[in-house]
Design a protein around this nucleic acid. Structure first.
Length: 765
DNA sequence: GACTAGCGTCTGTGG
DNA sequence: GACGCTAGTC
């Protein structure tokens, strides 16, 4: 029995608001937890306290997060706090928990026992296949857009039969949505959004089941509440019993932790408004603000606060810290993305030389595409690094191919898997045979596999050989342990042979080996009873069950922990991926108009504010040192773009910043540029920390050169100019001479314009 | 039916 | 700059 008095170990070292939050009575409460305010600590300590004081058994707790990482972290920390086996508890992501529920009640949910989960790539190819089967013009109905339409509706909890459509085009899309639903049902597959919607409907339509879970979960804890979408919100309401209560038990106490300033997932349906509605819908009694930041030095926090106060409609919260001001925030302007990368890598090497651990250095960017230059520079200087996100292990082509064979073994009706490997490696089954096959499948309302199997007598030997291959794979692997089954499939399908013959196949072969490794690890944990199919242990000797569990693991987990995760390496990731993490040193690169804030985002309603929150998240990742970098030119889509500094840079108080470009280096690089306009870029750092001319001078060749005679004298490509009507912009192109001379200028906010130099009065800035 | 050159699109973020 | 798709060729 654990002493639960306030000064016991469990509650020691909590600050007053944290303490209050942890020990709240069993009623719904909203915790506004600022960045670095000890949010995860409060969540896990709350669970431990509830259990230790016998207010609830581990059985009665449901804790929901968004990412696997957060769920794992919670489990680990909880295990360190109290002697309880957290594996039996319901702690997981929305998707993971819904999957667990659907597995446990697959019949009631109208699903096959071994239903497969489609990741977004699978979903897209399923949609493409659907459009093809229905002879729909995919130019009129772009698959990506349709996918967005379908997922958007599911995230609102709207099925095709209830979707609104006021015009023909939308009516058509709704019809396609319905067809897609039917196709998934036929194939026994479920996409990510479907996991949630299906689970919601299961509970909503099945009263005994609803009564069971509503009575069971007495405390529901939600992490990152600001990221919930409509469906997740409704799911919580239903689960907690604030909607359709089916039991005599009172509603659960919902402990929602969130930060409206860190809401960065509106693009996938998250509604910050859920935080405002929480009070009404969940009978919330208390709001607690966690505003003391334990992570960052003062200057970093001041910058974050200054930035975020520009957003409207905040719930209101100001972070403060006991820590000193610390170092100024370093701002670097590179001439090109390459120059920027060189600066970043140079600094990293110096930091590492001075004793900073590489894993304590994070390199953040707005979009994944930016990682390439940085990676290249890190690689060529031999700096170990690790990229998170981007192409994940289980999303790689070769891994997906191998998994598709395994999926066909587990479920022959999985048409997505069938199409992926029916002719890979090539075995003479072309578009023509497949079209015929799809026709048969369509008319007989059966899966492609069954259609193929029923036709093997007459439909040519290639298809028959494929069916025989899958059949023999199923038989040969039946008695094998999972890793051997995986290896066998890789060999017998001739996947390995295929990649052996490919010039660039080495990486792919290594990934296939890694897949066998992953299967071995998984099998070990499975056999140890640590992993189960639906929360209840399954017979580990049954390959079907192990395989199904492994496949669902592969679709719900990105495979982030695969290969080299523990290596001492610099961390590269998008700002989105960095949420919830912290590092001693953080670089934010690509702080340019159009990139961060992203040009697509600023067009959307509330888009700029979401970008600003994203910047806020990025800044607050840093503990001790923060670098902000931007470049004047950047390669994008294969061509050079001329960029203005991000407006977010202007929104930071100048006194917190130190411009680390030295005038001397820029003079070398840009002969003829006025020093006056550069004065504010002078270093505010002590001399020893300023950049020498040597480093940046080496990149002078990246400077675009364009000299113009006549009216535009002194203007160059890349030059910042001011126009009376359009404001400031950057010259991106020029043509003609004398009175015909025109320049193309990219104005911030206005866009790109061609201007005749004779008439437009452009002033160099 | 397999292979390849050329073209268009993409990179905006995730379970 | 990379990838997927298409048209053209073998």
């Amino acid at each position: 029995m654990i002493d639960s008095s306030p000064d016991s170990g469990l509650l020691a070292n909590l600050n007053p608001p944290q303490h209050q939050a942890v020990t709240l009575p069993a009623r719904s409460a909203l915790i506004l937890a600022g960045a670095g305010s000890g949010k995860t600590r409060v969540l896990t300590t709350r669970i431990a306290w509830l259990i230790a004081t016998h207010q609830v058994s581990p059985h009665g707790i449901l804790a929901v997060t968004f990412t696997n990482k957060a769920a794992k972290e919670m489990v680990t920390r909880l295990g360190a706090l109290i002697p309880v086996n957290p594996r039996g508890m319901w702690i997981g992501t929305f998707h993971g928990l819904c999957n667990r529920l659907l597995r446990a009640h697959y019949k009631d949910a109208g699903l096959p026992q071994l239903f497969q989960i489609l990741d977004s790539a699978d979903q897209l190819s399923a949609i493409k296949r659907l459009l093809k089967n229905l002879n729909v013009d995919d130019e009129k109905f772009p698959p990506r857009e349709l996918m967005h339409f379908i997922n958007g509706h599911k995230e609102q909890g709207i099925r095709a039969n209830r979707a609104e459509a006021w015009d023909d085009y939308t009516r058509r899309r709704v019809a396609l949505y319905a067809e897609y639903e039917a196709q998934c049902q036929r194939e026994g597959v479920v996409d990510f959004a479907e996991l949630l919607l299906r689970c919601y409907e299961l509970l909503s339509h099945n009263e005994p089941l609803r009564a069971h879970y509503q009575a069971r979960f007495r405390h529901i804890l939600v992490d990152e509440f600001q990221d919930t979408n409509r469906l997740q919100y409704a799911w919580l309401k239903l689960m907690a019993g604030f909607e359709q209560r089916a039991t005599d038990a009172p509603p659960a106490a919902v402990f929602a932790v969130g930060d409206d300033d860190q809401s960065i997932y509106a693009f996938r349906g998250a509604e910050v408004g859920n935080m405002r509605e929480f009070e009404r819908d969940f009978a919330q009694e208390t709001v607690i603000r966690l505003e003391q930041n334990y992570r960052s030095h003062g200057n970093i926090l001041d910058a974050a606060n200054a930035l975020i106060t520009r957003n409207r409609d905040r719930l209101g919260k100001t972070l403060w810290t006991d820590a000193g001001a610390g170092e100024p925030i370093r701002v670097y302007e590179g001439m090109s993305d390459l120059d920027e990368a060189r600066f970043v890598v140079d600094e990293i090497r110096e930091l590492v030389r001075d004793g900073t651990e590489r894993s304590q250095i994070a390199l953040l960017y707005r979009s994944n595409a930016q990682s390439r230059v940085l990676e290249h520079e890190l690689f060529s200087h031999g700096v170990p690094y690790r990229v998170y996100g981007g192409l994940r292990f289980f999303e790689r082509q070769e891994v997906k191919h191998a998994l598709a064979y395994l999926r066909l073994i587990a479920n022959p009706d999985d048409d997505t898997a069938f199409m992926r490997v029916v002719n890979f490696p090539t075995r003479g089954i072309g578009a023509r045979s497949l079209e015929a096959l799809q026709g048969v499948a369509h008319t007989t309302n059966s899966s492609l596999y069954n259609a193929a199997a029923s036709l093997t007598g007459k439909a040519g030997t290639a298809v028959a050989a494929f069916i025989r291959l899958v059949e023999s794979l199923r038989q040969e692997t039946a008695g094998l342990p999972l890793p051997e089954a995986v290896e066998h499939v890789i060999e017998r399908s001739t996947l390995r042979q295929h990649y052996l013959g490919e010039k660039e196949g080495q990486d792919r072969l290594e990934n296939l080996d890694e897949l066998i490794n992953a299967a071995a690890n998984f099998d070990r944990e499975f056999a140890g009873g640590e992993i189960t199919l639906d929360g209840t242990p399954v017979n580990g000797d049954d390959l079907g069950a192990v395989l199904a569990a492994f496949l669902q693991h592969a679709s719900l987990e990105a495979g982030d922990h695969q290969a080299g995760a523990e290596e001492e390496a610099v961390q590269l990731m998008t700002v989105h991926a960095a949420k919830g993490l912290e590092f001693d040193v953080v670089f934010i690169s690509g702080l340019e108009q159009g990139l961060f804030p992203h040009e697509n985002a600023v067009m959307e309603e509330g888009g700029l504010e979401e970008e600003r929150r994203l910047m806020y998240v990025a800044i607050t990742r840093a503990r001790k040192r923060l670098y902000l970098a931007h470049a004047q030119t950047r390669m994008l889509h294969g061509q050079t773009r001329y960029c203005l500094p991000s407006k977010f840079l202007e929104e930071l108080p100048e006194e917190l910043l130190a411009r680390v470009n030295s005038v001397a280096s820029r003079e070398t690089a840009y002969p003829g540029w006025g020093v006056s306009s550069q004065s504010k870029w002078n270093s505010a750092l002590p001399r020893s920390e300023g950049r020498g001319a040597g480093m940046t001078g080496a990149t002078a060749s990246a400077t675009p050169a364009f000299a113009q005679e006549g009216p535009g004298k002194g203007l160059r490509i890349g030059q910042s100019v001011k126009h009376a009507k359009f404001g400031t912009g950057v010259i991106v192109a020029a043509e003609g001479r004398g009175s015909d001379a025109r320049v193309q200028v990219n104005f911030s906010g206005v866009g790109v314009k061609w201007l005749a130099l004779e008439y437009a009065k452009l002033e160099p800035v």
